[in-house]
Computed example of a mutant assay.
Amino acid sequence: MNEIDREQAVATHGKPAQVLDAARALFVEHGFGASSMDAIAARAGVSKATVYAHYASKQALFAATTRRECRRVHERMALPDDVGDLSLSRALTDIGHSFLQAILSQQNLTLLRMVAAELPRFPELGPIFYDSAPGLTLASVSGYLEQARSHGLVDLPDCRLAAGQFLGALRGDSQIRALLGLTPDVDDAEQIVDAAVAMFVARYAIVTPARDGR
């Protein structure tokens, strides 16, 4: 079990979970800079020594909080366990719907706004958030496409690039509208996903010729 997996296992219950719950609430309410370790300990109902026993610094606590929140979102991503379970179009459609729902959730939008607001003072938050959220999703979709390529379903010179193109097509204008407090175009979620899948399949899918008599 690596360090992140160990951290995630510990943070699911007991005092570590209390600390993460308190930290998330204060980070959202007051921002990273204005949330002290003393305030986090008080909100969690534990001593500051207990907080430091689990998290060496506020940056480490933010990283753990972000990873937990992003893991919850990531767990809702509909990535097939086996590339052979679903057709390419069906798998991409499922991924598309779960991804769109995740990035437009209030939980995700709140976290993204907070990170963006704090970046000028705490630039280290940028890579922490990226590696825990967009980077993790990109790697997962890229991994699926690598499996699809090995099964002869797609012709992809660069799976990571293609995964980014697909996720970008799904984001479209909806995420920026949501971040700006405008009504996202989610009524057309079906249309957005169908269009992104159709473009991807038209560009990258390998069409297997039907055999005679079938």
Results as ranks from 00 to 15, higher is better:
I4V: 15
E7D: 06
Q8P: 02
A9T: 02
A9Y: 02
V10E: 01
T12R: 14
K15P: 04
P16Q: 03
P16H: 05
Q18R: 08
V19W: 01
V19S: 04
A22N: 06
A22K: 00
A23R: 03
A23C: 15
A23F: 11
R24S: 05
A25H: 12
G31I: 08
G33Q: 06
R43L: 04
G45S: 12
K48V: 14
A49D: 12
V51N: 11
Y52Q: 05
Y55P: 10
A60V: 09
L61I: 02
F62D: 01
A63W: 03
A63D: 13
R67K: 13
R76I: 00
A78G: 09
D81K: 12
D82S: 11
L92Q: 01
T93M: 04
I95C: 08
Q106W: 02
N108S: 09
L111A: 05
L112K: 03
A117E: 06
F129S: 06
P134Y: 01
A139D: 13
L145T: 04
E146K: 15
G152H: 10
P157H: 11
A162F: 10
A162R: 07
A163Y: 06
G164K: 04
G164L: 02
L167E: 04
L167Y: 06
G168P: 07
A169H: 01
S174G: 02
G181Y: 10
T183D: 09
A189Y: 12
Q191R: 12
I192N: 09
D194A: 14
Y204Q: 05
A205D: 01
A205C: 10
I206R: 15
P209V: 02
